[in-house]
Nucleic acid binder design. Structure first.
Lengths: 254, 254
DNA sequence: GAGTGGTCTAGACCACTGA
DNA sequence: CAGTGGTCTAGACCACTCA
């Protein structure tokens, strides 16, 4: 069938592998294959060259090539079947949810983000915040509430609680750079985030902030983020205008 | 600090590795480590034994042990830092979004699911359906609409379109087994799903079906699912009562 | 300097698929 | 049967962190 056509990757794609640089070989390979899928050089349904052959052609070991391919499989762009081969998944590609801040999201989509800082205060952790941040009840925390806009249109109301060490953050930096960038600047590397996505009606106050009618439907997300030592460094409750923001997820059966 | 305590995994955890059975060694190891995390044998913040040492103790090669650990890192239960070690992430564990049907979800949470079949018909693919399923405009497709209940409480209205080969599905099977189980029985293995999660107000009809007030906020999901050959085999638009259902996602920075 | 995870090699054997 | 991906080994060298 036409769908299973063999398709050999152009040699040119792998001409300039940098073997001594800091970028891992498997990453260089996976980037090139992914690019070939996204720009149509590898059409949907087509078969990828087999692992062993590809490894020989590139002068790499099979595990290295295998890892490159597996990374793309995990992104949902390829499917593999034992005894069959590797094929490009049909359907247009959608960007998946990533561990990024809203600030980054809006920047990437060519909108100009801005922020109104609504609240910036020290509060004692209540039951929920204490549990989410793994601190004892009543511990001081930084409580912030922000209105985020894209091209001056309100998109989200974001409420966050952070461990007390962040009380020294400058409010102006928060407005200028966004929360995650400020945390990165303080040496915090976010590694894991657990999110719960749901929906509810807006409160009258939120309706005013987001410029929607009263009782409009809002998309909500609760998120707890952990740094690279496994410590909870942020808990937040966000609500988004569903006409301006939604979440995309790609799931891959393992 | 107490949080970085060394913690050696009890030998007993790895007593009965089955080296000749069909279950991969890395999977057996990762299951045991994950179990030790979930039941508290490995407390949050504790350090896991290093890869090389663990491999020696278990009589396995380092890549095998490494893969076992990496699988758990990808689930968001462990974090690794070069030069430091591997630690258990803080915070309670939440089940993440998986590639399962609602039927499975409800069964897993000990509720009794049931289904009312609202629509079961052949319709010509419109623009959206044709694009999502990668078929030509006007191709016959199976269009179904179902009301899903848990313990007789309405939870979701689910509308789906499937390629015409599924027109031979027996409506009774859909009610008894759920869509995904019926597809599995026909040899379809789902591999990749792309989902978009958002929110909107309910229509008057949906409000009646879901037993909520008019204009209530609903959680919505559009999903396209692909089988193991990369072909689109399902497109659906679902809406959920947000008080009874939400989505959990665990994100891991790579 | 010692210990850790990150990358990479060059093979091996197996399970599954389709002709 | 040949071809494919799935698993596994036994090393190697490097980059990074901390004492």
């Amino acid at each position: 069938m036409a769908e299973s056509e063999e398709k050999v990757l152009p040699m040119g794609l792998f001409m300039d592998l940098e073997r001594s640089g800091p970028i891992p070989l498997y990453f260089q390979v996976s980037q090139r294959i992914e690019k070939a899928i996204l720009n149509g050089e590898l059409p949907v349904g087509s078969r990828l060259e087999n692992e062993v052959g590809l490894a020989q052609r590139l002068g790499l070991s099979r595990p290295t090539v295998r890892r490159a391919i597996q990374d793309i499989v995990d992104k949902g762009l390829l499917v593999r079947r034992r005894g069959i081969g590797t094929q490009v998944v049909h359907g247009q590609v959608t960007r998946k949810v990533e561990l990024t801040s809203l600030h980054d999201d809006l920047t990437n989509t060519m909108k100009t983000p801005s922020t109104h800082l609504l609240t910036f205060e020290s509060v004692a952790a209540d039951d929920t915040v204490a549990e989410k941040l793994s601190v004892v009840l009543g511990t001081p925390t930084l409580h912030i509430r922000r209105l985020r806009l894209a091209d001056d249109v309100p998109v989200a109301v974001m409420e966050n609680w952070l461990p007390e060490e962040f009380l020294t953050i400058a409010p102006d930096d928060l407005v200028t750079y966004g929360l995650y960038q400020v945390m990165r600047a303080r040496g915090i590397t976010l590694r894991v985030a657990r999110q719960r996505i749901s929906a509810r009606k807006s409160t009258p106050e939120e309706a005013g902030l987001l410029d929607v009618e009263k009782n409009a439907a809002l998309l909500t997300m609760d998120r707890t983020a952990f740094d690279n030592s496994g410590r909870a460094v942020e808990f937040g409750h966000h609500c988004y205008r569903p006409d301006l923001y939604s979440f995309e997820v790609t799931l891959v059966e393992k």
